[in-house]
Design a protein around this nucleic acid. Structure first.
Lengths: 215, 215
DNA sequence: CCTACCGATCGGTAGG
DNA sequence: CCTACCGATCGGTAGG
């Protein structure tokens, strides 16, 4: 009866198809714009199966949102496991966010929808993943300061600058295409998210290491 | 018959009430989440009057979205009219975006919803306002380079870094409050959008003017 | 896993 | 004939 409220069989092929479809639809329309029927149609299953296997619209959404945050946290953990150098660590944080926020990816659009909607679906477990994500930037900054390499600065400012710039850069893609058409400029001449990641890294390093000889 | 499709009497008190209500509802829920009935209820007006005075949901939304972009462009134009100094100009661009993206304001949430949704409602007139907005940053950067004060850099990178960081900082506010509760930290200790604007200005100036004696 | 439905609400429009 | 506006309801679809 209430079992499907608690337990989700992630090994089930049906569940995987539902989650893949839900990820796409939520990324395109956000929670309010997404339609349960669209997810069911894309997953090629009966609508009632969504409720049987996972739960209501809110529950499916929370599973998807959690997965996006966990994916970023896991990628950071994997890259920074045996990284001692603060500059290399910072570069990994920037590059991994750029990779996760590729404009083809669903992560940036879903996260942006959720933030714009007032973060009304942020559960404790989702917040925990963000705490993990943020802790990597914080520990890199701390190590940089301790080794005398970095200027002492609130790491959350660096983190918001990196993630904010790359998030907007990612969801901006359709807008920049319209703009390129409007001003009769080839889309190819506009900076890519990888260009932006490189630029960000450059700007932040020049700020954090002002006395470095490489400046 | 079809006249109301083209002409909107912005002087009408009824129109003003409708637009104020629509601005609030669209900011909270985005285009897909917003309900015509909610807008009508908030404006304390009969629903059919929305269609009579302005048009359908899409048309109302486009009017609101245009107003947000125009407001930013007008504020920039006003501030930069008689500004010669590139550094002062850059500071004005950052400060005005920070003021427009105040977390209490509707502008950042509506813009973020639109970008996350794939910029599906961007008309030519709205794009024109963005071209105006961007042109200010571009001309400031150009003047800075010409005077030998700034490093030569693609101005759109600076612009996206400024607007991206501040936009996410603005719509982040509810998320940061949840986070502060989660890690048992007072929200007061978290950086405000004005702190972030100051930080951004500092970081960008250190990048653009590396040889400046004030570094 | 499907068919057949529900209470309510959606965006938009009818006549007067 | 115009304006500003109302009560009631249109055909479809929402989550469940």
């Amino acid at each position: 009866m209430l079992r499907q409220e608690r337990f989700i069989d992630y090994e089930s092929g049906t569940v995987k198809r539902i989650l893949a479809a839900a990820e796409t639809v939520f990324a395109e329309k956000g929670f309010f714009g997404a339609r349960i029927d669209d997810i069911a149609a894309l997953a090629d299953i009966n609508k009632s199966m969504l409720y049987y296997h996972i739960g209501n619209k809110e529950r499916i959404y929370e599973v998807i949102l959690h997965r996006h945050f966990k994916k970023i946290a896991d990628a950071l953990e994997n890259a920074l496991m045996d990284c001692e150098d603060p500059i290399e660590g910072l570069r990994a944080v920037v590059d991994i966010h750029a990779a996760m926020f590729d404009s083809e990816d669903k992560t940036p659009r879903t996260v942006a929808h959720e933030l714009a909607g007032g973060s009304r679906h942020m559960t404790q477990t989702i917040l925990d993943e963000y705490v993990r994500i943020h802790s990597f930037t914080a520990s890199i900054a701390r190590r940089g300061v301790e080794s005398g390499l970095f200027r002492d600065v609130d790491p959350s400012r660096i983190h918001i600058m990196v993630t904010g710039t790359l998030l907007v850069m990612a969801i901006n893609a359709p807008f920049r295409n319209l703009l390129a058409k409007r001003i009769d400029q080839s889309p190819a001449t506009m900076p890519s998210i990888d260009d932006m990641a490189e630029f960000l890294m450059d700007v932040i390093l020049k700020y954090l290491t002002p006395n470095d000889s490489t400046s």
